[in-house]
Design a protein around this nucleic acid. Sequence first.
DNA 1: ATTTGTCGTTTACCGTGGTAAATTACAATC
DNA 2: GATTGTAATTTACCACGGTAAACGACAAAT
Lengths: 126, 126
Amino acid sequence: MSVSLGSVQLRIMQVLWTEGEATARRITDALSESSPIAHSTVQTLLRKLEAKKAITHIQQDRTFVFRPLIAENEVTRSAAQDLLARVFQGSLSGLMAHLLESEEVSESEMKRLRELIESKAKESKK
Amino acid sequence: MSVSLGSVQLRIMQVLWTEGEATARRITDALSESSPIAHSTVQTLLRKLEAKKAITHIQQDRTFVFRPLIAENEVTRSAAQDLLARVFQGSLSGLMAHLLESEEVSESEMKRLRELIESKAKESKK
DNA sequence: ATTTGTCGTTTACCGTGGTAAATTACAATC
DNA sequence: GATTGTAATTTACCACGGTAAACGACAAAT
């Protein structure tokens, strides 16, 4: 159920989600683009992710190819819910207020937001 | 700047924010209402919070009275920004979509949300 | 055949959060 | 004055995330 991931573990998962599958080397390279990380570190984290059933691997030739076992949805949803409950005591508008206040929001993003709200309002109106 | 707190530390801060100030005993009692916690645990965490300059204390008689040094704003904002950046790669609508999908949102909450968006839209229209 | 490079595996360390018992200090009560 | 109760402090674990070197296995290159 509640899949909690550390920040680097999350970044590893994000690579796997976008690529579908990847080798440890591939992941190390991808992560190193933003900030350098030792290959063995990535491997250790892959091990830990596998231990908690977040990923699995198959062997191809000599190397492991990793695949996500849990969906991005699951992780992002529980992270969002967790923040909402823990930090904002469930107040969606409280969370929203903070973000609107402190973030730059593009025009198109605002439009999408408004649409989200409208469609939700419509559906809850039965 | 970035004030990162654990979940129990956050709950301690929440007591301090709502009460303005409190003794360790008071905090232990408040937290124990939801789930029991040892008084010494609370004291240890108070110590750690003080070490990272999140709170301070003054002595009254024999007991310490703790006060928050950082505002709730600071913590909630950085938590929200952190989630947005790390988990949703900055996509506010992505975060919003998840929350609207998985949460029950009351009528009044929806109204407040819509108002937030509208007022933000208005102000950014200069 | 030996070297080199690349895997995966083992092992180890540190920081932080959380947990709490044990100890010390001291005021109030009996 | 001895006991009791409550504070704060000290000390000790454990789990987890992150970090990475060291080691061993093995295929490819020289």
